[in-house]
Nucleic acid binder design. Sequence first.
DNA 1: CCTCGGGGAGAACCGGCGTTCTCTACCGTA
DNA 2: TACGGTAGAGAACGCCGGTTCTCCCCGAGG
Lengths: 184, 184
Amino acid sequence: MDSEVARDRALDAAEKLFYGRGIHSVGMDDIRSTSGLSLKRLYQLFPAKEQLVEAYLERRDVAWRQRLAAHVDRCTDPRERILSVFDWLRLWFLEPDFRGCAWINSYGELGATSPRVLAQVRAHKQAFRAYVAGLVADAELPEPLGGQLYLLAEGAMVTAGIEGSAEPAVQAGLAAGLLLEAYR
Amino acid sequence: MDSEVARDRALDAAEKLFYGRGIHSVGMDDIRSTSGLSLKRLYQLFPAKEQLVEAYLERRDVAWRQRLAAHVDRCTDPRERILSVFDWLRLWFLEPDFRGCAWINSYGELGATSPRVLAQVRAHKQAFRAYVAGLVADAELPEPLGGQLYLLAEGAMVTAGIEGSAEPAVQAGLAAGLLLEAYR
DNA sequence: CCTCGGGGAGAACCGGCGTTCTCTACCGTA
DNA sequence: TACGGTAGAGAACGCCGGTTCTCCCCGAGG
């Protein structure tokens, strides 16, 4: 089997299991049986579990931000683009296997013990915040709004995960609309 | 030694270690050496680690909400009381051992595997949200504002933990002020 | 046909940790 | 002094899970 394909299968299994059940509750044997790869192959691709974890977070980071951007790009009006972020959050929250933000969860699990995971969490969040700030700048709105909308989005993610509901995205979207008005 | 005192020492150690390093990275031996209790005594008080975790979250829940309420009660004006929530968050974030919200972190670590911890996280967050909603009702402001302020606070907690900064409390407080104006 | 390298299956190893057990010291009491 | 009960220190046990090793098959090349 091609090495690329094997890597994808390993990462598919890792994403499904790590995101769904948490990282430390998933063993390499679980990754093996879900991916269909042998342990030997797995350890050829990722010499240790931590590297599999890092690769999982990295691949998901790229995919997550691409999906968000693709949704936002369906709008052209700068204000609509801002509000469509919360629209997309709602769609994400509604996915059946949604279980909160993978990076916030990883921070809770490994933030205190794995500097590399902590760095990835920070990088992901900074990228998201920069993206929101870019949308705000495109709409020629004042800069502090970016951070405030970012906090609303983070609060919605955390709450949607804990409560298992998509409602926080709606609430956050309403608040975002009010803030846009306030800064008009 | 009095059983009450021993229980307090165990919970002091549990809180310091579980909150500071995460739950699964702390062993019962760490609890023993930090608390100064013998393993035998520890297991008399808490028959299993999970019960120590639950007691830790429960005690911290009571203390956290008391501290918040005590700060808010220093104001009488209903609007100031609302904004003082974010004021208190900033003070909390500035504490030297601050490492994010204990319940959000616990959700990341155990939310998928421990129904009892998940229930405690939900109960704590519901209590906090109800508290904020009560402040909003006291100020005779419309009900949706409560959920929006709650999301801002959650976003600030998560971001302050990940970034290691108290700034999110200020940003969230500014956004809260704008929302108060918007609903005036 | 023989050989040899790579890969798969799963056992084996080993350290960590939750939990229990053993041994000993100590203290109050007859 | 003898004794029973309690508590502490820490070894022991058992399981789990990350990592490595063994054994076997198979396919390519001579």
